[in-house]
Design a protein around this nucleic acid. Structure first.
Lengths: 343, 343
DNA sequence: GTTGGCACTCAAATATCACGAGTGCTATTT
DNA sequence: AAATAGCACTCGTGATATTTGAGTGCCAAC
């Protein structure tokens, strides 16, 4: 698919893409000739543009308008044209300080990161927390809330906390809760939450559990506790998307917002990014988000000390400022990885 | 300010307000005469409308258009005209079932409630969690995460959980953590989190604390743990606001979204609602939200077993369906109160 | 191969016009 | 005196031309 292009064609394509990114309006031959200070006349540029159109890199909304890049052009642009900007000192400062200032544990850091991404990119920031279930178990605690209610608190070795309210049929004495806790803490030592869950299910079937009342009860309750919800997702800066001119169309916007209210969609979308290293870029239909919407996605994964991976990135229109957003995402992912590995 | 109006004027005003709520378009005299099946001619209605305009209850966007209600008219409408609809069986079912299904403790319930409010009203649902700090202390737990990192978990008697990562200068032995926990748990028994905080600060100054190393350290750490963040706020259904015709204007929308990203604004806005009982209604500029935006707010507070209060409600355009939203908010607040009091 | 020139296209901007919903006023009816 | 009918007037809306100009494609000339 990577077409051979002459140096000049590439230059012109680059100019068109960048112009369009800047203005969101179809760019014409003369604009390219002028702005880019090539020693070329508009007529020549026209010829080249006609070529590029034939190759499926440009389209014109109608005959007498300028041309706009196709998805293919963006792809080509990010693959081989874009000159990545450096992350400025100020941007670095913001990324780092925002990470640090948030004292509220993992969730806090990630939420803040999401906001930072949004601020720096002027698009939507998005962070998917590392899957809690593949994190290493650290501690479980039961706290009696009401007669038939127990709060189970589950802590991972990274300091992520999940809590769950559990209803019990019978009342459970405080001493028993403590014993249950001790028993389970020992049992799950060193396992990931996922493994712990399997272990519990296995134990429940064991012979011993059939006779030991306390044990069977403990297992039943902890099984609920360990069945944690979906991963956390942080999306910030939804308002910013309104800055983009092509989103003035309210109907389209609504589509996107609604997509984001069902976080499931995002998760599915992002799960693929988890496997690959480095910055991933999905353009338009590659995102498999609502086909029509012209959305692009730039992501990178980050890792934690316990080798679980999360995902962060930016969502914006296809014509987003790749040259600055890509480095920002990259840098942020590195910083978050480093910060979380310190622990 | 409550103007005396003849029965007929009131009828007509009501008709206009309701028509406008339904259609979002200026309503003319003949429309009122026809639709409302009053035995009146349009001319008569016109006279009355001219009156109402003089009294500041109506305005016309331009001479040859119909009239639209002013804020004052909405105020009058909700104060003395509106016929509240009953909450339908189906709506009740939804409210209750959504509350119950969410197993994830207090946060889960409130988040789900916020979503339900949005769904039923077709506007934006909003819930402010009861202030954690005035909740009764139940349990504190310290968990060692890294060499110099301790995770403090604080549980209230209602099952709300707050956790906080604390950095320590020196390493603390596991046994000491347990002793610290026991000591603090005993000390704070029966106090609210707020009181507990004060108690800790007082103890830190006491003579005993100066000598007992463990104790002073425990106090220092727990002081951080007890200093919890802002209250939680849940806002759902932001996409729905796009359904409203008057929000087709993207600029105005943006204002609102941005207001909601800084949750502080909402908190401030809602803190007044905390004191009063029953459903509170704020119309347009009464909300002291971005002055121009034409936003209304319907809220009610809910209480918990430990007598802390939270706030829930709906945000929409001034011309929102008061007759159905008010009862929904009212009912939801009652249900949430009941649910939280059971615990 | 590059360029200037020219005819052509078509969306968007502007102008024109008729329509009709709605008003305010006044004369008339009840 | 209150309600109504009648009428002239206003003004936004939508339909229909008309103009404008940015942009193209192509060809002949350099």
């Amino acid at each position: 698919m990577d077409v051979e292009l002459s140096a000049r064609s590439r230059q012109i394509l680059e100019a068109i893409v960048e112009d369009y990114i800047a203005t969101a309006e179809p760019v014409g031959s003369s604009a390219v000739a002028r702005r880019h200070a090539l020693t070329l006349s508009s007529a020549t540029v026209r010829n080249v543009m006609a070529n590029l159109e034939e190759m499926g890199l440009l389209t014109s909304p109608h005959t007498s308008a300028g041309r706009i890049p196709t998805e293919k052009a963006y792809r080509f642009y990010v693959d081989s044209l874009v000159a990545l900007r450096r992350v400025s000192r100020e941007e670095k400062r913001q990324i780092i300080s925002h990470c640090r200032q948030s004292g509220a544990g993992l969730s806090g850091i990630l939420k803040e990161t999401s906001r930072t991404l949004s601020q720096l990119s002027n698009y939507m920031g998005i962070v998917v927390a590392p899957s809690f279930t593949s994190d290493v178990f650290r501690h479980i605690e039961f706290i009696r809330i009401g007669q038939h209610k127990i709060l189970a608190i589950l802590v991972s070795s990274k300091g992520a906390v999940q809590n769950r309210l559990i209803e019990t049929d019978e009342e459970i004495a405080p001493e028993e809760l403590i014993r249950m806790g001790n028993y389970l803490n020992e049992m799950m030592q060193g396992l990931t939450i996922n493994q712990a869950r399997e272990r519990i299910l296995a134990e429940m079937k064991s012979e011993k559990a059939q006779y030991d009342r306390m044990m069977s009860r403990a297992l039943r309750i902890s099984e609920q506790a360990v069945t944690v919800e979906n991963d956390e997702i942080f999306v910030e800066g939804q308002a910013r998307i309104l800055d983009q001119p092509e989103f003035s169309d309210a109907a389209r916007m609504k589509e996107i917002y609604e997509a984001f209210e069902q976080k499931g969609i995002i998760l599915q979308l992002l799960s693929r990014c988890m496997t690959a290293d480095g910055v991933q870029i999905y353009i338009g239909s590659e995102t498999s988000l609502s086909r029509s919407a012209g959305i692009s996605l730039i992501t990178s994964r980050f890792v934690t000390s316990s080798n679980t991976v999360g995902m962060l990135g930016v969502i914006g229109p296809t014509r987003m400022g790749y040259s600055s957003v890509i480095p920002i995402v990259d840098y942020t992912a590195r910083m978050v990885s480093r910060l979380l590995s310190e622990a």
